[in-house]
Computed example of a mutant assay.
Amino acid sequence: MSRKKDMEASDCVTFEGFTVVPMKVTENSDCLHYLYIKDHSAREISVHKPKDRTLFVLNVPPYCDEQHITEMFEHIDKIQRVYIHNSPSTGLPHEHTKNFFSSVPVIEGYKVAYIVFKAKDAVSRAKKLPYNKPLIMHKKGGHPITSGLSKWINEYKEDSTVDTNKLQSEIDEYMKEYDDRIQQEIEKAKAMDGVADEDGWVTVTRYGKNKAAPRTEAHEKALTKKERKRRKDKELMNFYSFQIKESKKEHIANLRRKFEEDKQRIALMKASRKFRPY
């Protein structure tokens, strides 16, 4: 009770609905970093992030992880779970299920966090954190911070020692998933071969329906020639504007040529009908 009264008696600073909470990396640090916290409110109902027990935290530095956030806010109440995202989200963060070929993007730069407390009144108490008492990210005996040369050494050790068995297993799993996906696409293409879809388009594939008669190169050429002839027969005439102009020019030229031919024919007919007594 005394801790709660001290927090309520201290002054807190708010900015556009967020409570400004200063933090320091260590107790002896002179530089301050500021977090912006508020209660989590979203239209979508999330089982993992209940509105009445979830605290939304902005401007989380890159060197701060889930354990650091837990150590900074655990004095308010017991924390059930901490979620870190690249941007605000109502869902769960993507899990890294693969070590070598992960499709989950790495969160870089500043991020956001969701702190789920066990008690419902913990969020309201967190919003009253004093501005003059910075939170300490790394306390003595707490979760260590790797930075600078030590961070590079750890990353080098992790990257230089590769478990070949795990790597081969992950490659085999990836190739199996790829082969299954290609096989599904082939089966789908075979099913759609010669069948019009909703828009009237017909999918023409290189996979034949009859497995006993594989297509040879000559067969492929014959089918290509047949398909080209079919497209040429069904080609729309005078569809484009330049085709309309060309057809008009050709029609006018044909009319003029026919007019000249008719004039010559009439002249010959008149000449043949003249009276010639001798």
Rank of each mutant, 00 (worst) to 15 (best):
D30M: 02
E187R: 08
V204W: 05
P277Y: 08
V13F: 05
D163V: 04
A218T: 08
I107M: 12
K211Y: 05
I37M: 14
P88E: 08
N210A: 14
E27P: 02
E235Y: 00
P22H: 09
V60C: 04
E261I: 11
D39Y: 02
D262A: 12
S103I: 00
S29I: 02
E220R: 08
N210V: 14
S46Q: 08
G17M: 03
Y36H: 15
R215Q: 10
L236N: 03
S160K: 13
K229L: 00
Y110I: 00
T161M: 13
S241N: 08
T70M: 10
H96E: 15
K78N: 08
K127W: 01
E261Y: 10
V82D: 14
M23A: 15
G109N: 09
V82I: 11
T97P: 05
K232Y: 01
R230G: 01
K234D: 00
E170R: 07
K98I: 00
V104R: 12
N238R: 15
G200L: 01
H96F: 13
S147Q: 07
K133V: 08
S29T: 05
M23D: 05
Y207L: 05
I252Q: 12
M23F: 07
E158I: 04
S150C: 02
R53Q: 15
R81Q: 06
N99Q: 12
F242K: 07
K5T: 13
M269N: 15
D193T: 13
K234W: 01
S241H: 10
G142V: 01
Y83H: 12
S87A: 15
M137N: 06
R125C: 05
K234I: 00
D180V: 12
I115Q: 09
H33T: 13
K111Q: 15
W201P: 00
K225H: 01
T164G: 03
N238V: 03
